[in-house]
Simulated assay, not measured.
Amino acid sequence: MGQSLPKPALRPMLPTDVPVLAAIFIASIEKLTGDDYSEAQQSAWAAAADDEHKFGARLARQLTLVATLRASPVGFASLKGADHIDMLYVHPGAARHGVATTLCDALEKLAGARGATALTVEASDTAERFFAKRGYVAMQRNSVTIGDEWLANTSMKKILAAGSSA
């Protein structure tokens, strides 16, 4: 029987987090999306973190939260503007231990506090089931080009409860 992990703690992203967040991003794509995307698609997608400065700048322009277990980063999520989840990634070793749920709960509360009435996300085929279980509804399928590869995702939307914390 496996040992249960403690509940993840959340904190704002620090500039020194960028290398580990880039590593989480890459590991998440490489280890968790293989059932839905080819190796070539995964490589093209993960290449977004090759330039850590550019990757860090993207996260710094958004409200980015870092999930930690025993003080070590294991996931992150970013809110673009008041109403769009841009990134949500969890290290494979911490997957299915409530990290994504904790991050998403926090982003939904923050979006509501920023006045958003709905929250949107471009969910990968791997993440679509996670968001659907949280009440996000598929709006449309998309094809995006990354490098020489085409990847599919789904635009999803969740109506946030008025006057509540999502």
Rank of each mutant, 00 (worst) to 15 (best):
D86F: 07
S4L: 11
S43H: 11
H91W: 12
K109H: 10
E30Y: 15
A57P: 00
M87D: 12
R129S: 13
V99N: 05
R129D: 07
D86W: 03
R96V: 03
D105L: 12
K109A: 11
S164C: 02
D51A: 00
A57E: 15
E52F: 04
A118Y: 09
T102Y: 01
I85R: 01
P12L: 08
R134H: 11
A23D: 14
E52S: 05
I29Y: 01
L107A: 10
D17R: 02
K133P: 01
G115D: 13
E108W: 13
R129W: 12
A48N: 05
M13A: 06
E128W: 09
D105R: 11
I29P: 07
V137K: 07
K54A: 15
L59I: 08
C104Y: 12
A100R: 01
L88Y: 13
T126P: 00
W150S: 13
K158I: 08
G81K: 02
N142G: 08
S124F: 03
N142W: 05
M13D: 06
D50E: 11
M156W: 09
L88F: 05
Y37D: 09
L32W: 01
P19I: 09
L151P: 07
T145C: 04
L103V: 04
A67T: 09
T64N: 01
G112N: 03
E128K: 13
M139V: 15
A100G: 05
A161S: 14
T16F: 03
L103A: 11
A67L: 01
D50R: 06
T154Q: 05
R70K: 14
K80I: 10
S4W: 11
E128P: 06
L151E: 03
L5S: 11
D17Y: 05
V90I: 14
A138W: 06
S143V: 15
S143K: 13
I159G: 00
R96G: 14
P19F: 10
A106L: 10
A44K: 13
D148I: 09
Q41P: 09
L103T: 03
L151R: 05
P92F: 12
F130C: 10
G112H: 07
L63N: 08
K7E: 11
